[in-house]
Nucleic acid binder design. Sequence first.
DNA 1: GTTAAATGATACGTTTCGAGTATCAAATTG
DNA 2: CAATTTGATACTCGAAACGTATCATTTAAC
Lengths: 135, 135
Amino acid sequence: MRLINRNTDYAIKALLHIAGNSSGRFPVSELSDVLKIPHPFLRKILQVLQKEGILLSSKGKGGGFALAIPPKRIYLTDVMKIFQGSLELDHCLYRKELCPDIKTCPLRRKILSLEKRFVQELASITIQSLLDDKP
Amino acid sequence: MRLINRNTDYAIKALLHIAGNSSGRFPVSELSDVLKIPHPFLRKILQVLQKEGILLSSKGKGGGFALAIPPKRIYLTDVMKIFQGSLELDHCLYRKELCPDIKTCPLRRKILSLEKRFVQELASITIQSLLDDKP
DNA sequence: GTTAAATGATACGTTTCGAGTATCAAATTG
DNA sequence: CAATTTGATACTCGAAACGTATCATTTAAC
Ligand code: FES
Ligand code: FES
């Protein structure tokens, strides 16, 4: 099962690098170098994080990206939502509204309850907590 | 997030139908009719379940599929493994063996522990337990 | 002010994979 | 034999994931 896609993973890695090194601005060139992520791809990702208010950016020489909010307030689930959409563990193939079985589907009830707890646990992970875990 | 794909879902629905109606053999034609699943697609799915020892099959007139083992012993996670591969919530994009960060990746540890509990809970679901839930 | 280095915006290409179809062969029943 | 069923397997199609390319804009340093 794919829990986390590349966009999210790269985003988290970039955020960890920025949060873990308190210099001012990090240009994409530095990040893509250190993290071995294709430059234009990472750039697109960071631009999204900027639009979403997680990163600040400045153009021109000496520019780059910096955190817009403290690592404690950057949640893994936020990043996942940005790059992967809803976190619901959608077992149902049809769009929920259209599913002919939604009333009777026995899988649905079971999974909804498991889902809730799982997402709650996921939601406790922040950039800060990931940093704290590092050796 | 896609927890369950179409193969798995269709497989579960077919298994529920078979388990819930104690006639002898269920030809694909009947199942695909009742469950509104394209005939050749469902057929392929049931053939896999047969190979995996979950269904019995017999050819020819009056043939079809029947459970090979009791509903209590058919686990959702077994079906998921068959059609979706490993249940690991693989956050890592690279194949595990090749991932350059596998030692240091802070996401990995966090997610592995959440994963364990989640899969354990999933693993409690069987065809029988789904049947019992039905109204 | 010119130039180099950076991001903003956005369009495009490529690969992968999920979902479903098509076909022929083999078995079973009557 | 004829009809009905599964076995095996190759193929198509479309969407989504993944990644590239390009041009415009801003900024700092010289
Ligand atoms: S198949 Fe749609 S809710 Fe279960
Ligand atoms: S990125 Fe490979 S283990 Fe985390």
